[in-house]
Each structure stands twice: as C-alpha cells, then as structure tokens.
Design a binder for these strands. Structure first.
Lengths: 331, 331
DNA sequence: AGCATGAATGTGAGCGCTAACATCTAGAGC
DNA sequence: GCTCTAGATGTTAGCGCTCACATTCATGCT
C-alpha cells in the first residue's frame, strides 16, 4: 500500500480512502491513486482489514453434509444472494447435528470474524444446538419459524401451506382417503407437512388416517408402496418428498397399480427430473432463490442492528400427470 | 491474549506457544495457560494470525452455481475432506464460466489469504479461465486430466473408463446397436464418456452410429426417447447421465416400449433414486468421497511444494434392471 | 485584510498475533 | 565452584490496514 502511495505521490491514508470510497478525495487524486493501484497490480490485504475493522465481508453457512435437495438448494441460493450483496461465504458441513459440532462451526466463524452466520437447520437437533449457543454475532436459522430472539433470526419456507395446497388439490379432485407418507419426524419440514395434511383433512371433515412413517428415501417409498399395493390402497398418497414419491411410483408400477387411475401421488420439492417420473409427478415447488434472498436481507438487518421481518416464503403446487380424480368418486 | 498471559502469569508469547503446540513449554506452564484460556473463554483471532503467518487455514472452492449432481457432490466431498484435515472452506459459485468471473473469484481467495484453491471445472470455459489466471497460489482443477504445470494441479474421475465399462456391459449382454445420448459437448465429462463409448464399440469391431446430442436434462432425454421410439430403435442406449436416462425411460414408457425387453438403458452418476426409476437404472457410480480426498491430498502436496501425483479415480458400474440381453440376439 | 469554515490530506497509533532474537535458569561436566 | 549448554521464557518489532486526530489549504465572510 505504501508503494502505491509513493507512486501516486500521496499518503497511505489517502490510498485507503480511495479504496474505501471515502467522499472527501479530489477526483484528480483519486484517479492518480487508481492508476498507481492498476500499475502495481495492488490488492488490498483483507486479513489486515478484518483485523482492524472487525468485519470480514464474509458470512458463514452451516449446513448438513448430505446431498439432500432442500439444504443444497438453500446453500446455493444463499451463496448467490450473498455474492450479489458483495459478501462472501464460508461453509461448514456437519455430519450430525449435535450441539458440539454446531458450536465448533459457529465458534470458528466467530474467530474468522464473519459478519453473520446462517444455519440451514431443518432438524430439531440443529435448532437446539443453535439455541444453546450464545450468539455474539447475528445468526439466521433457515427452516424454523421462530420469532427473533437475541441475535437469532428465522427464515423459512411455509411447509405447512405447501402441504395444505397439495392436500387441497387432492380433495378438490374428489379424493377422500388420502394417505400421508411422512419424512423423518425430527425434521421440522416433515412435521409441518404432516400438520398441513392433517389440518386440511380435518377442515374438509374427512377422517384422518394414521400417517405412515418414512424417511426421505426412495427405498422407503418403495417398501411402503408395495405394502399399500398388497393391502388396502387409498385413492391418493401425499408423500413428504419426491424421493418417497418416486419409490411409491416404482412399487405401484411393479404391482400393476396404475397412477393416477388407481391411485394419485403427490410429492414435495419438485426435484430435477420429477417432471419425467413415470408418470410426471404432481409436487410442490419451493422458491429457494427467494429464500436465499430473504435470508440475506434478514441477516443484513440483523447485522445493522435493525428489526427483522419474519416473512415466510409460500411454496407453489405444480400439477402434473400423477394426480387425477378417483375413478369411482366416493359419495 | 495478554489477559490470558496475565492470568497464567506468563508472557503473551508463551500463550502463543502453547496454542501452537510449540515443543519447549513445560507441562506445568502449558496446563496453567490452558486453564486460563478456559477460564476466560479466550479464542485466538484468526485475522491477526493470517496477517502475520500468511496462512489462513482456509481453502477456496470455485464451482458452478447449478445444482447438478456431480459438482455438488464434489463440493460436499471436498468440504468434508478439508475439515478432516483441519482446513476450512470458502465457496464462490459462478453463473457462467467466463474468465472474468473465475479470475475475480480466485483473486478474492488470494486477497483472503487462502492456502490454496480448488476449481470444480468440468467445462472448457472453466478450464480456459483457470489456465489464463497466473496462479500465485496452488490451484487444483477437478475434472480435467491435465498434467501439473506451474501451480496448477489436476484431479479427475476417469469418465472414459466409466463409459467403457458401461458399454462393455452392453456388448457383453449381446447388444450390437448401442446408441449414445451425449451430454453438452463443452463438458469434458461428456466428451470423455462419448470417447469411451466410441472406442469400446470400435474395439469390439462394431459400427459406431452417430451420437445423439444432448444436454444434461431429463427433458432432452424424453424428446430423444420419443424420437427413437417412433423411429428406428436401437437395442440399447447409453445415456451420458441419469437425468437423460430418466427422460428416455419416461418416453419409452409412454410409447409402450419396454425396458429392458425392447431396449436396454444405461445412465451415468447413480443419483439418489436411480435405484427406483422404472425400471431401476443400470448406471455408473463415481466415488466423489474419494475424489474429494484425492483433491485435498494433491492440494496439500502443492501447498508444501512437493510433487503431485495425478492419479485418477475409476468409477464403478452398477447393474440394475434396465439392462438385459437383447431379445433376438443379432448374429 | 483577517479570520472562521470546511474540504482535502497527512501523521501516529494500534488492531492481535507470531517470528526472531535476547535472556534467564538448571543441570552436566571438569 | 565454575563454565557450558540447552531448554524455557521474555522482549521487541512488525504483518497491512483503518481510525482518530492533526494539519494544510482554498474559500467566503465581516
């Protein structure tokens, strides 16, 4: 930096001012400094900046190490939103959401001087871990609908609304017996989707069957599909994600159960390729791009100490060939 | 740090030594310092460390912003490998692989003082962009099989070998007319898979039909599948990835073409759920975990100035129900 | 002319840490 | 008892930057 200052014939402080867009620098001086920067190929050392400003222009993101659709899409969207806002992203993945691992990750981010952190925490354990960390930097939790407290903020897609839309679609087609294949119950998303399914059925005055426990895997969907086909088949199944739905479709195909003629299937996520499942899957699309942007907006306001808006993102139903009216509409 | 030193009754330098595992510190002193650290909840400021050591314990990863299976899996694997090795990861995604964007990303990493960088560059543009950046830090390119040059290293999965295995499997079953639905030709992976298919057919003394241009999408696979079903159907199709294969399966199902009885289909990637496509897809599995580890090992040796081993990872064929011997084995 | 005013620039200190060197201490060897 | 040595510790400087303050300079006012 002093080299630049010398070449431009100014003090190091003026160079600093130019680089930080300080107002009171004469245009001529600014130009001279910029030329010197260019000529010398000078690049500011961000470690030194961070040391003195206590700001790194970086945010930390903690997410699960699994390649699940939701977390991954969220991560990518956050990175994009951050970069659009001139921030950079550090990532730590955790194997399990135990408090120690999360705390280690967040502590690391603090050491690094990140301006804020995001935790993509769709699971209870993750949330607990974050809550028990006494946050000295702003932290946004993606996936929960908590109210802001301390330095914690929450941003989420409204899974409940998504599930309601999906179930309503089936009710609207005339279905009455709508089964639900859930995600793992320690996932908030899974519970919200379950709740949406249940409430929607209750509002419609329908009996609510016992939900079928699932994880997020196609394998589980397949097993359940076989069992359903061999036993009492509902007229529609709402699966908690597309993988489960894919497994159902496979099982039904194998047993000669036709979709949607014999049974309708709805998924959740609108993963790539779900439009070419056999048959193309009716599913619920979440706007991850919007989620990422919202996330960053909230983080920004938290960093600047302002109040945060706790808006949620509402997902959208995509109707495709896997759903239709039941063949013999029940009275 | 001076607080810790005061509490432990030593100098700040001794504290530094303890924290850096310097050998010549008496066990008693070390314990006292550690206690003080614990009592005060002291955490070392990494910006200050980076400033003086010129090492941040961080690596940068540049990847595409798309949620494609390969790049994502690679990213996650690298993060895991890095963390296991005590390194942290900064991520920048690029929208397009233009030289300017890549250079910006790498420059940023340099400013940040990363110890090295990884570019997940399966596309020509990406490679060009990296090559034209005069690397002053070690950079590992994932996806190319370049020889090391300067500070550049390369690590890759052997796409060619994977394709050969897949095609060999079909030849072995008795197939003769094996079509290939390619990926985008500006992807190295796509070209390598194409090359493997072609060479394998040639070695077997079979005629090599014109490859069918594709991208990575199920939609494209679907279109091609319809065209094939309506025209001249080969006895087997090798699709450059699972999404394309999924589209093919959909098209064939729609046209009443049975898989594998009428046509065999092979994919590439072994994405989650490919075991529950209808029918379950024969595909090629890449060991991303291993790729990530190799990647970090190479980066490490590059950082320490040692020579790098340019080993590649060999993918593995997974045979499932989508392939079988052709019904009327051609002479 | 003389002085307040504010914009443009320079000066010094210090962020928290580590590297290099200086110093001290205890035991070995004669 | 004395030096020698090596291990354990302390001292000083400086990484590259920004902040707070000091200084300079042109401008407009009485």
């Amino acid at each position: 930096m002093s080299d630049v200052a010398a070449l431009a014939g100014v003090s190091h402080q003026t160079v600093s001012r130019v680089l930080n867009d300080h107002p009171s620098v004469r245009p001529g001086t600014r130009a001279r400094v910029l030329d010197a920067v260019e000529a010398l190929g000078y690049r500011r050392n961000s470690a030194a900046r961070t040391l003195v400003t206590r700001r790194s222009g970086t945010i930390g993101v903690v997410t699960s190490g699994s390649a699940l659709f939701g977390p991954i899409s969220t991560l990518l969207a956050i990175e994009r939103a951050a970069r659009d806002g001139g921030l950079f992203v550090s990532v730590v993945t955790v194997r399990q959401w135990d408090a120690a691992e999360v705390r280690t990750a967040l502590d690391h981010f603090m050491d690094q001087g990140v301006d804020g952190a995001v935790v993509i925490a769709n699971q209870d354990d993750a949330l607990d871990a974050v809550r028990t960390w006494d946050a000295r930097i702003p932290v946004v939790v993606v996936g929960s609908q908590d109210v802001p407290s301390g330095r914690l903020r929450a941003v989420a897609v409204d899974q409940y609304a998504g599930a309601c839309t999906a179930v309503w679609h089936l009710l609207d087609l005339g279905h009455r017996s709508i089964a639900h294949l859930t995600g793992p119950m320690d996932w908030i998303d899974a519970r919200e989707r379950l709740r949406g399914w249940r409430d929607e059925l209750e509002w419609a005055g329908r009996a609510v069957p016992a939900p079928i426990d699932g994880d997020w895997t196609a394998e589980r969907g397949f097993r359940v599909g076989l069992a359903l086909a061999d036993g009492e088949l509902p007229t529609a199944v709402f699966a908690a994600n597309d993988q489960l739905a894919l497994g159902l479709l496979h099982a039904f195909a194998q047993r000669g159960v036709r979709v949607p003629q014999d049974v309708s299937v709805v998924g959740f996520d609108a993963v790539d390729g779900s439009d070419h499942f056999v048959p193309p899957l009716t599913t619920v699309h979440q706007d991850f791009e919007g989620l990422g942007q919202r996330c960053l907006a909230v983080l920004r306001t938290a960093i600047d100490g302002e109040a945060a808006s706790a808006e949620t993102i509402v997902p959208r139903l995509i109707v495709r060939a896997s759903t239709a009216a039941p063949r013999t509409p029940e009275a």
